[in-house]
Simulated scan of single mutants.
Amino acid sequence: MAMTRWDFTLILNRQITPAEADALDTSSVPLFATGAVSYTTGGPDTSELCCDIEADSIITAVIHATQALRRIVPALRPVAARHDDTVTLGEAALRCTRSRQNLVQLSKGQRGPGGFPPPVTATGGTALYSWAQIADYLRSLGDDIPAVSWDLATVDLALRLAATHGKVDHTEIGELMQSLGHHPDAV
């Protein structure tokens, strides 16, 4: 597989301290030494790793960034990945050749064959959808929309799941995964 440059942002478990920032800045670990991975500090939110890494896949790139970070500051770890999958129907219309009104009609079953993806969340009366799901649906209707990679969304879910380690009953999670048809050792 050819190497590709991956640009992504990882959300860390907390702010980077000044001592940790110094350790990252003076590190000889290649990803930090070459600037392929940089970080944010300050403000009320957690720090972020801004990554621009060459790798076979985005998952491999995230693994490299995480391993490099943990070699320098073991207490820091990514807990989520930022990705732009969540959209309103208006934002989705800007990514395809359909109008917002047409997408609203599809979502309400007023047009098309039905089966439009449901919102992933609704806040304050605004429904938010997965762009990857909408793109898959529109492609099934024959629209010429490039395939959307699910890899970064999967990385985000994996990081969020890993962040809950120690906060959940692993016996029940194993039973849940088994009930969903997954072998417990495969998780």
Rank of each mutant, 00 (worst) to 15 (best):
G124S: 12
L89W: 01
S149W: 00
A153C: 06
W131I: 06
R82S: 14
I53H: 03
L94Y: 08
A36I: 05
A122M: 11
N102K: 12
G142S: 06
L69V: 03
I145H: 10
G90R: 14
A80H: 08
A75R: 14
R71V: 07
T97S: 15
T60H: 12
S149N: 05
Q67Y: 13
A75D: 15
V155N: 01
D136Q: 13
N102D: 15
R70C: 11
V104W: 07
A55I: 01
I53P: 01
G35D: 02
T46D: 12
A135F: 00
D52P: 00
W150M: 13
L152Q: 02
S38G: 12
Q110L: 15
R70Y: 09
Q105V: 00
V87G: 03
G43C: 08
W131T: 01
I58F: 04
G142Q: 03
E48L: 14
E48K: 15
W131Y: 08
T40V: 02
S38N: 14
L89C: 01
H83G: 02
R82I: 13
E54S: 15
A61W: 08
D45V: 09
S38F: 09
E48I: 02
T86P: 00
D45Y: 12
L141T: 03
D52T: 11
S140L: 08
T60A: 15
N102F: 14
A81M: 04
V148P: 04
T126N: 08
I59H: 11
S140W: 04
L128M: 11
V73H: 09
N102T: 15
A135T: 02
S130I: 05
G112V: 11
G125P: 10
W131F: 09
G125H: 12
T46M: 06
C96R: 06
F116Q: 05
S99L: 00
R77M: 10
V120A: 09
Q101Y: 04
T121C: 14
S57M: 05
L103F: 00
A153N: 06
I145L: 14
A127K: 15
S140F: 03
R71F: 02
G42S: 07
A81W: 00
T121K: 15
L138I: 06
A81S: 01
L141C: 01
P117Q: 10
Y129K: 07
